[in-house]
Amino acid sequence: MNSASARAGTRRRATAQGSRRGGLTWPLLVTKPLVVGAACLLTYLWIDGQELGFTERGLLNASRLRRLTLEHLDVALSATLIVVATAIPLGIVLTRPGWRSLIVLATIGANIAQATTAFGAMVLIFLQLIESPGSTPGGAGRTAAILGMAAYAFLPVLRGTLTGLDQVDKQTLKAARGMGMTGWQVLRRVELPLAVPIMLAGVRTSLVLTVATTTIAALVGAGGLGVLIINGYESDRTTIIVAGFVATAGIAVLADWAGAVVERFLRPRGL
């Protein structure tokens, strides 16, 4: 074999890899936060330039915005965490021999959860919870919102896990078993690392979905940035609706960005 050309090929590949990991991605990585920052600044300047009445001042102030944002993130991140903690193990179990027949069933279930309105599910859960003794409207609202969002965002992570594990090269798995790895070792050392990129893509999709849709949590009294939109609608103040909209879109984009950063660092080298 022509070893000089092989070396050149390797070097080419190595450079391509280097640029994908370094130079090329950095501009992309800083673009999103910059755009979000600019949008927030513009919105702030725009609102600042308006004649603000007593209502706006009461509804749009820094401490209230901070509290709503934290509530929003609390619901969205808790829901994502629950999804990750349940959908990934479920996906792993379903891809083990003997369980595969249940994949269709689980996927249909997750599909239904995503297709039916998360809002409806939320209200139903809320009504169930509020009737149980010792519950407060706020606590029940938060729980209902988190569970509703979790059901809604379950599918992308489940599907990502299933696809990620299924696309691992069968020859590679055969080699792993043939060399004497136990089923658990094959899963931990070979299947999961090789499935990580696709699994993470699922988690990222699910995270963005949750962050963007958690606005409806306001409707069951769980707070969040959806409250601003409702406030604006009820008091007929466009500025407040715009503020709620920009803030929600902003953190959704930032969530996507954070997902991209995590993907970049968790993706195994050599792939």
Partner: peptide, 12 residues
């Protein structure tokens, strides 16, 4: 155990 197309672990 050696197989066709080596079956090497790409992430290692």
């Amino acid at each position: 155990y050696v197989i066709q197309q080596s079956g090497l672990f790409p992430h290692m």
